[in-house]
């Protein structure tokens, strides 16, 4: 029912693409990260909470249809519905059913509860398309609560030493996740403009976040003391970041699980905090779908396909896409991200 072509994942019967990377007539978007929600589609379909972010990033005038989780669209006999993916707020898996055959495109997802995102829903299907960003047994993520506690303890310690704490986290999703769980009794919270833009949308549509100040011309840098500052990864190595001195730098990413990556990034602390599934979560998700056919996209796809075939006896196929997963060494999350080829390996 679905095919992979040079524009993206295509459903010919419905005449619609899912997360295409080239301009097409009609596109269903799993979530608003820039490697999945791209510019130039004539018409978009997306979850209600993804829509305002897409308008911010792709233009206020895009033609987009907003839908709720579980709401069924019938396009030329294909029943299409969105289901929570747990990746970031407003992220969805796409379920497509035609003549009794069911496919699920999961986009990016995680099973772990993060405290702000609608949790992942297991959807039964015959064919499942999964990412494999952390599809290696060495990735075993701690619970969100443990990491939030570590972040707050680190902030307190830095404050005691007279230093600011800067956290680098994706502006969309991870930044709100961290922000919502900060212990506001420790000190003030400041935001990079890119984070504040997204936070405003979050607060208008979902709910309040702890009080924080946007860092703009009106803020005197001397007033920022012992504070927590949340910035996107693209702020690394910029004069903007240096003006926060004295500070300690923390990076939130699943890649921080590996010591080599932590050291390479030159951060003071790496927090293992990801919006993607780790090894056990991927395996659970795949098994729970009951799917016999699994298409493995962005990540350790050859290793993970081999594992699915040899360990679970599934038909696993590697698929090349242009999704980037959780990028560490570039700035996929920036609002002007270029299309980067799929290769997390």
């Amino acid at each position: 029912m679905l095919t992979f072509d040079k524009c993206g994942i295509y459903c010919a019967q419905a005449g619609i693409y899912i997360d295409p990377w080239k301009p097409v007539d009609k596109a269903i978007i799993t979530h608003a990260h820039s490697d999945h929600a791209r510019w130039g589609m004539k018409a978009y379909v997306a979850h209600r909470l993804a829509v305002p972010v897409m308008r911010l990033r792709l233009g206020a005038d895009i033609n987009v249809q907003s839908v709720e989780y579980g709401e069924v669209l019938n396009i030329n006999g294909v029943k299409i519905s969105l289901h929570p993916a747990g990746h970031i707020w407003g992220s969805a898996q796409v379920r497509l059913e035609y003549k009794g055959e069911i496919w699920v495109v999961s986009g990016d997802y995680k099973l772990q509860a993060d405290g702000i995102t609608t949790p992942f829903e297991h959807v039964k299907c015959h064919s499942f398309i999964t990412e494999s960003t952390f599809g290696l047994p060495v990735y075993k993520f701690p619970t969100s609560e443990e990491v939030y506690a570590d972040i707050n303890a680190w902030w307190q310690k830095n404050r005691d030493e007279g230093k600011n704490s800067v956290i680098l986290a994706y502006a969309l999703g991870k930044a709100q996740r961290v922000h919502a769980h900060l212990n506001t009794t420790i000190g003030d919270i400041y935001l990079h403009g890119a984070v504040d833009n997204i936070n405003k949308i979050y607060e208008e549509n979902i709910g309040a976040l702890p009080i924080a100040k946007r860092i703009d011309a009106s803020v005197n840098r001397k007033d920022i003391k012992g504070a927590m500052i949340i910035a996107p990864p693209s702020a690394a190595d910029t004069p903007w970041l240096r003006s926060m001195q004295p500070y300690k730098l923390g990076i939130c990413s699943g890649w921080m699980q590996l010591r080599g990556t932590r050291r390479r990034r030159g951060a003071d602390r790496g927090f293992v905090l990801s919006d993607h599934a780790d090894w056990e979560q991927l395996n659970t998700a795949v098994r729970e779908t009951g799917a016999q056919n699994v298409y493995v996209t962005h990540g350790y796809k050859s290793i993970y396909s081999r594992w699915l075939e040899t360990n679970y006896g599934l038909n696993a196929t590697e698929v090349d896409t242009l999704y980037t997963g959780e990028a560490l060494d570039d700035t996929t999350d920036s609002e002007t991200a270029e299309n980067k080829p799929d290769e997390s390996i």
């Binding site: 290696l136 047994p137 060495v138 990735y139 590996l258 010591r259 080599g260 350790y300 390996i345």
Partner: peptide
């Protein structure tokens, strides 16, 4: 091959 360190790989699995 991906972790690049024997001791670390074992401690992670």
């Amino acid at each position: 091959h991906i972790v690049g360190d024997l001791a670390e790989t074992i401690s992670l699995v």
